[in-house]
Design a protein around this nucleic acid. Structure first.
Lengths: 156, 156
DNA sequence: CCGTATCCACAACGATACTG
DNA sequence: CAGTATCGTTGTGGATACGG
């Protein structure tokens, strides 16, 4: 596969700076931000749980949580356990949840190419059937990678 | 959505270090590696083209290309234009092409949340119909994000 | 429990100059 | 054209100590 950009390698109306991939990576920040989001997707919400599960220093955790909150993919929520004072926790916003395909596509690739033995986690549906990240049309039909093309907007 | 890990937030048989997302990020390296791969996916192959299109220094380009080659997602290929001496170019391996869902999921998210106005590039099939990254079962049927679960391997 | 402040180490990057 | 060598700057992170 090579996404042929409709046959041209450098369309005039597309510039490498005006690129959603670059802007998304800039917004999310370093790789440790992705790991924070992975934990958030798994259900981790509290500061010390992030720190413990990721094996990162509190300094880094605080910086990443603040950055991701400002980026709008996490938000602080107050909660109160009975008998305790109110605390904050960090939960995914809709924007953050929508990063799930990206994260799970990464996981899928690593499971395929970097995992020795069976993968530790499997993505399944409500009935336990395996689920994969794939390309599909609006009607839900699958698109093979060889059929993919990138079209620049002004070609329409 | 929260991927409930079958109801438990920290399954005993899964550790944050043994994680395909982390290992994949470690293998690929810094964010600029992802941008290199984006260019490779678009069809860029030659050293100076990477440097020019990404606006990065030759030092960084050389380091990233070497790293990605060692990681097995790019490989050097000799080519020879008529009348020129042979040169090297960097092309995606199968491993590298299989990162397309990850990169395009990133692009899709950025198009949705960071793009002002219409996206500059559209992912389409051979007939020009729009294509998205989505979750699906082995039989091709679509899975809604709310239906997703992560199951640890030893629960089988 | 949930962070912040300070200090230090290292990795990534751009700029520049240089080689086959 | 396709890199390598060196330098200086910045960003990221760990360790430690400290504050609400």
């Amino acid at each position: 596969m090579t996404l042929t950009l409709d046959g041209r390698l450098a369309p005039l109306n597309w510039s490498p700076e005006n690129c959603s991939i670059r802007r998304t990576l800039d917004l999310l920040g370093p790789a440790s931000s992705i790991l924070i989001l992975r934990e958030a997707l798994y259900g981790t919400r509290r500061f010390d749980q992030f720190a413990e599960r990721l094996g990162m220093s509190e300094t880094s955790i605080a910086a990443r949580l603040k950055q991701l909150t400002q980026a709008g993919v996490l938000e602080r929520q107050q909660y109160r356990e009975p008998g305790s004072r109110p605390r904050d926790e960090y939960v995914l916003t809709q924007r953050g949840e929508d990063l799930a395909p990206t994260l799970l596509a990464l996981m899928q690739w690593g499971d395929c190419y970097l995992q020795e033995g069976p993968a530790p986690l499997h993505l399944v549906d409500a009935a336990g059937e395996p689920v994969r990240v794939a390309f599909q049309r609006a009607d839900g039909t699958t698109v093979a990678p060889e059929e993919l093309h990138l079209r620049s907007a002004q070609d329409l």
